[in-house]
Amino acid sequence: MRIDCPHCGPRDRREFSYRGAVLPLPEPGAADEAWFAHVYLRDNPAGPIEEYWQHEGGCRAWLVATRDTISHRIHAVRAAAAR
C-alpha cells in the first residue's frame, strides 16, 4: 500500500501509522452519550472511509485519507490540519 503524502509524495505504508476513522469531536459541554458514541461506536463501512494516518516516518503530518476498505484503493489524501 502506498499513500500519497501531500507534503512528501507517494510513500510506502511502512512510513505511516494509523489511527482510524475521522470522527467529529463532540462540542464542548456535549453530553456523555455524545462522547461515548465518539469514542466507541463506528460505522465501519465496507467501502470508502475517511481515516487518519500519520506520516510518522516522514514529515510527521497527520493526514486524512479516503480509502476503500474492500479494494484498499486510496482516492484522496489531505493534511488533517487543512480543513
Binding site: G20, I70, H72
Partner: peptide, 13 residues
C-alpha cells in the same frame, strides 16, 4: 495489518 479492511488479504510490511 493495522488498518480497517474488508479485503481478505493483507500487505507486504
Amino acid at each position: 495489518d493495522g488498518y480497517n479492511s474488508y479485503a481478505a488479504r493483507g500487505n507486504l510490511p
